[in-house]
Amino acid sequence: MVDAARGFVVIAGAWVRAALTYRTSFVIMVLVQVVITFLDFAAILIMFSHLDAFGGFTLPQIALLFAMSGFALGAADLLVGNSEALGRRIRDGSFDQMLVRPVAPIVQVAADRFAIRRVGRIAQALGVLTWALLSVSIDWTVGRVVVLVGAMLCGSVIFCAVFVMGGAFQVFAGDAAEVSNAFTYGGNTLTQYPLTIYPTELVKGVTFIVPLAFVNWYPGLYVLGIDDPFGLPSWFQFASPIAAVVFVVAAATFWRIAVRHYRSTGS
């Protein structure tokens, strides 16, 4: 575990240094990330020029949900977003090269071409979060702070798991890299809005199948002091860590199966 972390830092570090040598290009890329992720929020702002509540939620409340989801996706994208490129690596032979080195392949796949510019998305999310926390009326307790911070961490872990699964999937269906996007960026888009706008089946899907609702919705309900509109158990609002652990275990297993499959068939 420590070895893996060390390997990650060492490899990612080389790429961070490389990115920082082109200072202006780096700044531009970060700004692009900030703007592109802000466009989503701009759309929400435009929507709110026509109404006061969307899905029963006010703008600051939605901003909170938006920021939590954006942060989680941004952190996951930064850490393991590169797993989306596994299909490409297999095709160009660089994955074989990784298997020959004394560092776990998942670490190499994630850390190679580490894109520090992705902090742009995280920065944008934190910006919106700040605005949301200042604008929304929350009955702050220690519990709510813990749940908020915990949700941001667990949410990141959940999205990390989604990225890794997307990568593992490419061992079996190399060209279909884009499927992962439907769950990562699609998942982010879906959870930007209060789940009240979706039919119950969809909400159950993102609760029990792909636990994206635990990234921001359930913990968000607790922080905002709102009862679950779907009547699901209220302890779900504290269950983000459970969802994260379960999903991460699933992702790690799938990844291991994928690597074993690759080494047995040598695509």
């Binding site: 074989d96 298997l99 020959v100 074993r260 080494r263 047995s264 040598g266």
Partner: peptide
Amino acid sequence: STTVKMLTGILV
């Protein structure tokens, strides 16, 4: 190449 891949552990 297949032999080398097995010797290096890439292929089982």
